[in-house]
Design a protein around this nucleic acid. Structure first.
Lengths: 346, 346
DNA sequence: TTGTATGCGTTATCAG
DNA sequence: CTGATAACGCATACAA
């Protein structure tokens, strides 16, 4: 069909053809102008710009994507969008990627691997150019999904054994080791551990740090002192309840993340106990408000900003092809913030 | 070009043509099968499914969108993704929209109208099917952007005078009125107000509720008791500092949102004061952990879940065309959570 | 420099 | 019920 005799002037949005027609140039020239892919004479440039302004043309990113194969959109799934840790990371990733010209499609799997898999499928289906994943856990479907895509993928927060992709994590075992050692130094011997799920590398690594600290201090390991959770507030509550209602209850409780520590504190309150007088508490993940509310939580602050920046950087490098072929693993350090929620044991 | 003699088997992802070829059917039949748009015989269905499995075909959403004009993606911009209020709303919107088959593209404007406008442009450019906006503020560019798009738009949290679109907000003035009345009933007369920006309807409405409560109680209005902020933590800190360092300092401080109240509490601490002994504190926006940390904040809990659900519902109704032509305004009620951060004034 | 023609992967129309 | 073919809006070799 002739490019001139179209566009009934009513229905749909103006296209490049309309611009070409009203500017009296060819569609290729308009395209060249839009992409600065070739020099367009000043005269035509002027006419094209006038035409664009007149009919309010905006280029259709879908058609453009179909042609170029790139959407300039990246997918981001996190285990829990309500978790301030992820929120902070997301905010940074967002900023970096946006200023690099990418939009971000965000999904939260709510610590549910089935939902996570669906969302990764959704994202891949939407033809994102790349993927940043904070995995809810290692699961076979996701592994297969990620392996079978040719899009660059960056893992954050948690590793997945079966995946050879770029990743940004913190030294979880080391971080926990340090906190537990600090608690032990305060005189505590019976230290309860509210653990994350073993399907998550963070769950496993943080528990490992706990064991290591105990062994290092020569403290025997008591199976009753470890309770599993799924990183949610309720899990922390239940775990702390179980820990604190046993005969020889722990004098300190460590929570493997921020949400569970709130649950644990609620359990402490519901049992009529107080922190740090009756039970010392520490955790991984800092709160921005930790210094203004009591108990002022002793916690390991994760370098959220840097995690986000590094993740975005790794992805951007892959997208622009300047990354080396082998996967890169960035390991960051947490920082122990000693506050008032752990008391010395007399 | 003949649909059979293509696909060099190496490079790009398999297309419908490949499926048609390996299944020995026509491309239209494959399409009919994929969309269930027409009955396909059992025999062909079987062959198509086998082919899809064999070559690992996945339908290209970009091409599909180009053809159908729908992306099944909706854009969502919030004023601040780090604010738990927005996070909660986002999480709900996400869930509802996802289960309706839509993906969500999220942007955070960080209370910056310029960034917000860019992001709305970005989203519209990505051809989202609809938009949910928590405006950083009324600004002309956004108003024009929203007005000129034919995509359905839903506003949440904040209204924009110039826009005749669906919206979900809470009764801000009423909510503040109630809190302030409660504080007045405790005996307070000098009540500082840490306000949001006047470019945001929430900023204006909440301040109006404050004035109304004072007038209702016959308390004179003192210009020195109101400090403007931009809903960020730092603003709350600065505002509270100014309020509490004046000669006849207020006995109570009300913060127009959650982030600023944390700043205010930090200021109180830095001044060597304590809450609620020296200064009572209340705010809009509840915290999930408010009951386990001291001071236990008295606050108005916004119905975050319902805000998200209603916003998603309004948008979905527009998308499916079952909505009435005129814009709908959903006004929800906040709930005053009385805790311990406000003390009676002897 | 500027214009023409073709294809990206689907969907949809219309014959068979 | 199935098959061929024309768009969807843009980019891009290639021709002029």
């Amino acid at each position: 069909m002739d490019q001139v005799q179209r566009r009934k002037k009513g229905a749909s949005a103006p296209t490049m053809i309309d611009v070409a027609r009203t500017a009296g140039v060819s569609i290729a020239t308009v395209s060249a102008y839009m992409n600065r892919s070739a020099r367009v004479s000043d005269e035509l440039t002027r006419r094209i710009e006038a035409a664009i302004g007149a009919i309010g043309y905006e280029r259709n990113a879908i058609a453009r994507s179909l042609k170029t194969g790139a959407t300039h959109t990246i997918g981001l799934t996190v285990a829990d969008i309500r978790n301030p840790f992820f929120t902070d990371v997301v905010a940074t990733i967002q900023q970096v990627l946006n200023s690099a010209g990418y939009a971000v499609m965000l999904c939260s799997s709510d610590e549910n691997t089935a939902r996570q898999d669906e969302q990764i499928k959704l994202l891949l289906d939407r033809m994102v150019d790349g993927l940043i994943i904070a995995p809810a856990g290692d699961d076979a479907v996701m592994t297969r999904l990620v392996k079978s895509t040719r899009k660059p993928v960056v893992l954050i927060d948690r590793l997945n054994a079966g995946l050879d992709v770029d990743a940004v994590v913190i030294e979880n075992a080391t971080a926990v080791f340090e906190v537990i050692r600090y608690v032990i130094d305060l005189g505590h011997r019976r230290i309860g551990f509210v653990s994350g799920p073993s399907v998550a590398s963070t769950g496993r690594d943080r528990l490992a740090g706990y064991y290591e600290a105990l062994r290092h201090a020569g403290i025997g390991f008591d199976q009753m002192l470890v309770c599993n959770g799924n990183f949610r507030e309720d899990d922390g509550y239940r775990a702390a309840m179980r820990l604190l209602t046993q005969p020889d209850r722990p004098t300190a409780i460590f929570s493997a993340n921020n949400l569970m520590v709130i649950g644990a504190l609620r359990a402490i309150r519901d049992l009529g106990l107080s922190c740090p007088d009756d039970v010392s508490v520490a955790c991984i993940d800092d709160f921005s408000w930790a210094d203004v509310f009591s108990p002022q939580l002793t916690a390991v602050a994760q370098p959220v900003k840097e995690i986000g920046e590094q993740a975005a950087r790794l992805l951007l490098e892959r997208l622009s092809g300047v990354a080396p072929p082998e996967p890169r693993l960035v390991r960051l350090q947490g920082e122990l913030m000693v506050r008032g929620s752990c008391a010395p044991l007399s």
